[in-house]
Design a protein around this nucleic acid. Structure first.
Lengths: 160, 160
DNA sequence: CTGAATCCATTGGGATACTG
DNA sequence: CAGTATCCCAATGGATTCAG
């Protein structure tokens, strides 16, 4: 089983503990973990997983999408991605800000005004999301049919 | 705030309950939910969210990636994406099969042999994943710096 | 070999109330 | 307006055991 070339992403996704297939022996070189000859960067692995986890969450994706239309204030966002709760919106915004996908600007006024704005990184990540949507457009019937065909089988599935 | 054009994905991601921004009033037409003039398809919304949820999970992504190298049997897969548990691998495989991303072929023999293989849909979805990896490659320093800069702030965050 | 069933710890995330 | 704090429930997912 080859590991080179197109499937390099995999090696960045495997967990750190006992990484079996990550160990790619390069002939003529000392045993080291490399990806296409480049030394593996654990932080890249971490970040890919982190981003996939982010995109799998409900609200951050929505926030990213609505901010693509321009900067918004907290309650504007809250209405835009309703029915998000304050808690979840706040948590999502902090997570996105932490990763540098949005900026948080406080205008010292009464009442307070806080503006959230997409960064360039956030904008480009948003674009990557459209690839998923494109895939769905191309495979909607396929998936729907597969699910229908699968319907007759057992029901108690831990994962959806 | 405009909703047209580039940000159509958003409207497919909003929850069904009380969809605020989904309702796009088209002047001169009867009030109906449309996306770029095309009637909205709730099942597409569902599927996009479903796929994002799938990609946010730990093991299905890994399974998809390793199967990109060719078909594998259950225990081969288990070793390849170690340290996955049997339960999680089984659940992931059923989910992927349900969505038509992989096929499950049982060879009637003793001991039993089951082969899992990527479908064309699974292969193309795999490709979409590389866009996330590309984004990470382009923004690794940005995100790392943002996280470091954010470090000084409060600690109790419900979302990561 | 290929799973399913059971038990249990952690976490996501909603409702509500309160604050500068 | 822009949040934080608390409570609580359901779902995720790991470890272990059982079965065809």
């Amino acid at each position: 089983m080859t590991l080179g070339g197109k499937n390099a992403l995999f090696r960045y996704l495997v967990p750190r503990k006992e990484p079996t297939l990550m160990k790619v022996a390069v002939p003529g070189q000392p045993a080291a973990w490399t990806v296409d000859g480049v030394p593996e960067r654990p932080e890249r692995c971490e970040l890919i997983r982190s981003m996939l986890g982010l995109l799998g969450q409900r609200w951050p994706v929505l926030v990213l999408q609505v901010l693509g239309n321009g900067p918004l204030r907290f309650n504007e966002l809250r209405r835009a991605v309703a029915p998000v709760t304050q808690r979840m919106l706040s948590a999502s915004l902090r997570g996105l800000e932490r990763d540098g996908l949005i900026t948080r600007t406080v205008y010292p006024s009464a009442p307070p005004k806080v503006e959230y704005k997409l960064t360039e990184a956030g904008r480009t990540l948003n674009v990557a999301l459209y690839n998923i949507a494109d895939w769905v457009d191309a495979n909607l019937e396929t998936v729907t049919a597969a699910r229908a065909a699968y319907g007759a089988k057992s029901l108690t599935h831990p994962l959806e």
